[in-house]
Design a binder for these strands. Structure first.
Length: 317
DNA sequence: ACAAACGTGCCAACCTGTAT
DNA sequence: ATACAGGTTGGCACGTTTGT
């Protein structure tokens, strides 16, 4: 299997009127990619600028960032031609790798805008190199700009950042470093531009010390929280029934937390995130993670503080 | 029976940091 | 500039529990 390290640059409206008129918020104007084989050796590269069809002026902030002028794009091919060629170039046995979690969504949005055949009907499995960098070298949660990672890893800065070919090149360099770290490549991600359509397509991914569940769509939060798979607290490692130490609670209606105890695997923290999908429906991302007593106490404190805060506020008014 | 207090869900507003 | 993720805060609405 090959690794396709992909980076896109896009433009957007530069005034309110244009923004309101356009169905596409971000228009892709550059594609850069590096193809690595299964040994992480570079075997090919792809680079193409794209002639815009939606925005004919460069957004000022974007223009200063990516240093591309509209004149450079005048004689380029349009998105459909470039994207079709790019996808052909990718081949049929690959996994995408991107810096951050945005590019695959924007790629699919642009493809949908031009009514191209979809990349996938389901969530796409890929590597978020920004996340892998955090897992390999930082705290697993922090998200850094690409330049930080390049400097952190003492990678030679040969070309300017924020161009698709340059950033794909640097991302590939960082990817090679994180791939060399033991176990890091087990931590794949899912792009959720396309959601699971039914129970069978729902995602249950088990990693070394955590698990991720991505649900199908529900009409509202209540429906989601009434689904037994969504609120299930079975141990993600052995499937055993757990004791609920802290039942699901929420501070803001978006995140729900819980603590359960597996007889074999100890304390497990559960977190449910409510996410909005298109047409005002919602879906759920649930993560389960083995945690120590300190974390358990943090969650209990969080819940108590929440109650405390509410009580105080009531007394004040 | 009634009102106050409490617990909870939900939302808007705001924050930081990242992407272009 | 827009959009997103993830977080906090405060207020509103509602149902339940508690005190009298």
């Amino acid at each position: 299997m090959n690794y396709i390290i992909l980076d896109l640059e896009w433009n957007q409206a530069d005034d309110l009127k244009t923004k309101l008129e356009s169905e596409l918020t971000f228009e892709i104007i550059e594609v850069g990619a590096i193809k690595l084989n299964s040994e992480y050796m570079q075997i090919d590269s792809f680079h193409e600028l794209i002639k815009p069809q939606v925005f004919n002026r460069m957004n000022q902030v974007t223009g200063e960032l990516i240093h591309i002028s509209m004149r450079e794009l005048e004689n380029c091919r349009n998105f459909c031609e470039a994207a079709s060629d790019f996808l052909r170039w990718c081949g049929d046995d690959y996994i995408f790798c991107t810096w951050g979690n945005v590019d695959l969504t924007e790629l699919q949005k642009n493809m949908d805008f031009y009514h191209m055949p979809g990349l996938s009907k389901k969530p796409i499995k890929y590597y978020d190199v920004q996340k892998l960098f955090s897992i390999a070298f930082e705290d697993k949660k922090k998200r850094r700009a690409l330049q930080f990672a390049v400097e952190f890893l003492n990678i030679k800065e040969e070309v300017a950042f924020h161009r698709a070919d340059a950033d794909a090149f640097y991302t590939a360099k960082v990817f090679k470093k994180v791939a060399a770290a033991e176990g890091v490549l087990k931590n794949y991600s899912f792009d959720t531009y396309r959601l699971p359509k039914n129970k069978a397509e729902e995602i249950n991914a088990v990693f070394e010390d955590y698990a991720k569940y991505i649900s199908r769509e529900f009409i509202n939060k209540l429906a989601a929280m009434n689904d037994k798979d969504v609120v299930s607290t079975k141990c993600f490692l052995c499937g055993a029934k757990t004791r609920k130490k802290v039942p699901w609670f929420s501070n803001n209606g978006r995140n729900y937390y819980s603590v359960m105890v597996c007889p074999r695997h100890g304390n497990i923290k559960g977190k449910i995130r409510m996410k909005k999908s298109v047409n005002d429906k919602i879906y759920v991302v649930k993560t389960m993670k083995q945690v120590n007593m300190d974390t358990v106490n943090d969650i209990i404190m969080k819940r108590n503080q929440l109650r405390e805060g509410r009580r105080e506020r009531r007394h004040r008014t």
